[in-house]
Amino acid sequence: MIVDGLVNAAGGFTPPTVEDMHLPNFFEIGSFGFGKQMLLVLLSVVIVAGFFMLAGRKRAMVPGKGQFVAEMGYGFVRNSLGKQLIGAHHFKPFVPLLFTSFFFILVNNLYGSIPFFQLPTLSHAGSAYVLAAIAWLTWVGVGIKRKGLGGFFKDLTMPSGVPPVLYIILIPIEFLSNLLIRPVTHALRLFATMFGGHMAMMVAAALMSHLAVTVGGLGGWLGSLAPLALGIFLFFLELMIQCIQAYIFALLLAVYLQGSVSEGH
């Protein structure tokens, strides 16, 4: 946790800022900068790919621990997110995307709870928007390919069973909701929870350090117990949210894909 520089000249408490969480780049080439966040993103690709490749290298009828965990993770995504939501007839082509999305996001979220790493990379808005854009392009592209441009937009903006007179109101609402607001909220839901949860932990850690070190004395040490307890609570809460948000992102992607391949709105 970053706690340096949180005491101002008057000795008062200065809470951490966005700059404290998003560290400077390691190096920059023109407008391109490479920092800890990008390094962790690349590392997550190595972690996910390396684990599943090693786990599946020696496949056996009686799986070892690594193969068992890998098969359980794959089966969870395939069946719970793919087969059950998209449908038994359409889900197979989308399993790799759902699988990759879930485990990639999970690892990048869990960085925030791992000592030394301590940075959920998707607390950067840009990363979350890129993932949401990939998801948006996928389900829109699938819908247009399956139903045609006109059929896709008709199915998306003209719900069945609604009196035609209401379409003049529903069409712009559905268009904005599904094609513009949906990808934004898909990204914001992930970014905001990762950013807010980690910032709350940083505030608790900084306050504990301020009371114990700067204030000092018996009162300071006793006072630091409250933010310590809060920090421990937030740690486990954030750990749970990190897993849930990875699931929710992949879940919503599956729901959107189901709408693209289904016959009705």
Rank of each mutant, 00 (worst) to 15 (best):
M61W: 11
G66A: 14
M72E: 08
M72T: 15
F76R: 05
V77A: 12
V77E: 02
R78N: 13
L81Y: 09
L81F: 05
L81A: 03
G82Y: 08
I86W: 03
I86S: 08
H89E: 14
K92D: 12
P93Y: 12
V95G: 02
L97D: 02
L98K: 05
S101P: 00
S101Y: 06
F102W: 00
F104Q: 04
I105M: 10
L106K: 05
L106Y: 02
N108W: 01
N108Y: 01
L110Q: 05
G112R: 01
S113H: 04
S113M: 14
Q118V: 11
Q118D: 15
Q118C: 06
L119D: 04
P120M: 13
T121P: 00
T121D: 01
S123W: 03
S123R: 02
S123E: 06
A125W: 02
S127G: 07
V130H: 00
L137G: 09
T138V: 15
W139S: 10
G143V: 07
R146K: 13
K147S: 07
K147G: 02
L149H: 01
K154F: 06
K154R: 07
L156F: 06
M158F: 07
M158K: 12
S160E: 15
G161P: 03
G161Y: 11
P163W: 10
P164E: 10
V165K: 07
V165A: 14
V165T: 03
L166F: 14
I169K: 03
L170N: 04
I173C: 07
E174H: 07
N178K: 13
N178D: 03
L179A: 09
L179I: 13
L180D: 04
L180V: 15
I181H: 07
I181L: 15
P183T: 11
T185F: 11
T185P: 00
A187D: 05
L188E: 13
L188G: 04
R189N: 14
